[in-house]
Computed example of a mutant assay.
Amino acid sequence: MFNTPLPTVNELPSTRKLLRSTVIALLVASGLLVTVVMPSEYAIDPTGVGRALGLTQMGELKITLAQEALADATPPQPVAPAAPAAPAPQVTQAQPIAKSVAQPEVTPTPALKTNQMTVTLKPGEGKEIKLEVLKNKTVSYEWTAAGGPVNYDTHGEPYNGEKGYFHSYNKGRQVLSDKGEFAAVFDGTHGWFWRNRSDNNVTISLKTTGDYLSVKQ
């Protein structure tokens, strides 16, 4: 039976070498956190490397899937009945003295934008189209699905809002089309998310008309 001899003091790594190895390990771990973990898990890509490697898109898809799951799990909120309006009091009107009234200035109505877009979904794939809309501006829309029904969620996200927060206007499962109008509840991006749960490719054709700033596809 042989005993392994203990290393001598000269054979052990010095404190300087151990410190250098520790610093190198920390730098490598920090680099992997910034370039791989943050883009792929949280869609945060301060260096741009994650998007170049396709990791940021993976993180964005994970966040979208989490939002869809949260929206599917949230039960619809009951709408409280409106209180009956109180009768207006009877007021005796005095006869006004006729006088000239200045005509108010007429503000020209801004021209509405109209866009027609298409997007194709592979089996199991989800995609979205968003519009930049300011608060209280309205958008009318109509879309159809060719190739099979899809799940959809019409929703909006505020500029610089909390991560994961969104407002849902309406949603549905396994439908071939939808049309309507919404008024933006805040400044931000508002639009549609579709998911193809079938085994075939599905093409979405969307037409929008309204007072919005731009289209994000």
Rank of each mutant, 00 (worst) to 15 (best):
M1W: 03
F2V: 00
N3P: 00
T4R: 08
T4S: 10
P5H: 05
P5G: 02
L6I: 03
P7Q: 06
V9K: 15
V9W: 15
L12V: 12
P13E: 02
P13G: 00
V23E: 14
I24D: 12
A25C: 07
S30N: 04
S30Y: 04
S30R: 09
L32F: 12
L33H: 02
L33I: 02
V34F: 13
M38W: 15
S40R: 10
A43P: 02
A43Q: 08
I44K: 15
I44L: 15
P46E: 02
T47M: 12
G50T: 14
A52D: 13
L53C: 05
L55V: 11
L61C: 02
K62L: 15
L65W: 02
A69N: 05
A71Y: 07
A71T: 05
D72Y: 02
P78H: 07
P78D: 14
P81T: 12
P84D: 08
A86I: 09
A86N: 08
A88N: 06
A88L: 13
P89I: 12
P89V: 11
Q90R: 03
T92I: 10
T92K: 06
Q93N: 07
Q93K: 05
A94R: 03
Q95F: 03
I97R: 00
I97H: 01
I97L: 10
K99W: 08
A102D: 11
Q103T: 04
P104F: 14
P104C: 06
T114P: 01
T114H: 11
M117L: 13
M117H: 10
V119S: 13
V119W: 09
T120H: 09
L121N: 02
P123E: 02
G124T: 07
E125K: 08
E128A: 13
I129H: 10
E132W: 15
K135P: 06
V139G: 10
S140E: 14
A145E: 09
V150Q: 06
Y152S: 01
E157K: 05
Y159F: 07
G161A: 07
E162R: 01
Y165T: 00
F166Q: 08
H167L: 08
Y169P: 00
Y169T: 02
N170L: 12
G172A: 09
V175S: 04
L176Q: 09
L176K: 11
S177L: 08
K179H: 13
E181A: 12
E181Q: 14
A183P: 04
A183T: 09
V185M: 03
W192N: 05
W194C: 07
S198E: 03
D199P: 00
N200T: 01
I204S: 00
I204C: 02
I204A: 01
K207V: 00
K207C: 01
K207W: 00
T208Y: 12
D211S: 01
Y212I: 09
L213D: 09
S214C: 03
S214R: 07
K216Y: 15
K216C: 10
